[in-house]
Write a protein that binds this DNA or RNA. Structure first.
Lengths: 151, 151
DNA sequence: TATTGTTATACTCTATAACTATA
DNA sequence: TATAGTTATAGAGTATAACAATA
């Protein structure tokens, strides 16, 4: 059983577990990422959000529609340039984001389950080493909204 | 940057790299898996192959069509039960399988690139520990055709 | 003409469901 | 009727391309 095989399967398992948990919360990891971006800089244009997450602009429209329906974000035309929408997170959105962040931590802790603290640190270090080689801009990247919730 | 995030991204990267390399070889990891199963037990029925790999039977038909076009497998009606097809790997199929196995080893080695031998062993052990919890029947499973090439 | 957001289209993967031929 | 293989259909997910409003 090769290491890359284990990586693929474990990554897939982690993703599945996350999707299921987010679905029970009525949202998708994509929503988490969008809320996290909006929570960093309070007002953003849709193009800026999409770019910072690496999402397609068309994809973002639907995500924002769903977040707006739930009252987690608000959209407003920019008076200075009426093509632009100003998007901001609401108070309900902030509360939802806090819950999603707790959920993500819980998922992480559950997934690493039987590994003790030292072994978790070891695993993380090894994966970061691989990531620095295989995941562009991952080595020096700060914990940002973009990676708080993945997809 | 969470550990599960790194797992997801690295698993995805490993999969992408593998797909690209297999594509250049004119085949898919699925083909590798099928050939590996056929190489274990020389004659198999399509249902048995599909079941041992966890593939859908409809999915397998197309894979075998492609392998047969390339002369890597042969199908033959079972005279005793004309509903069944006997599938066997050809000499060309065995040669192709050897190449795919070498390719998989190469991909693994490339992916783990800068990790030395001890760190590779350590990573593998940690991943196996996680796998025993999250990937059913993975802990006690021998290296089998089913996992030689993944999907 | 170029850009922002939006909508529509198409393509990949996969899962499911008919269909045929044999039993 | 039940099964093995085959074919067709439908769904999720995503990428691409057209579109309307504004600059």
């Amino acid at each position: 059983m090769s290491t890359t095989f284990l990586l693929k399967r474990l990554g897939f398992a982690a993703k599945e577990q996350a999707l299921e948990a987010y679905e029970q919360a009525g949202l998708h990891p994509y929503h988490h990422a969008v809320l996290a971006v909006l929570d960093e800089g309070s007002r953003e244009t849709q193009g800026a959000i999409a770019d910072s997450l690496g999402y397609d602009r068309g994809q973002l429209v639907g995500l924002l529609d769903e977040l707006e329906e739930r009252g987690l974000v608000e959209r407003q035309r920019d008076p200075a340039d009426r093509r632009r929408q100003s998007v901001r997170i609401t108070q309900d959105g902030k509360r939802a984001l806090a819950k999603l962040r707790a959920l993500a931590l819980q998922l992480e802790d559950d997934f690493l389950g039987r590994l003790d603290k030292d072994r978790r640190a070891l695993l993380r270090e090894l994966l970061r080493e691989l990531a620095s080689e295989h995941i562009p801009h991952c080595a020096f990247q700060q914990q940002s909204a973009a990676v708080a919730a993945d997809g």
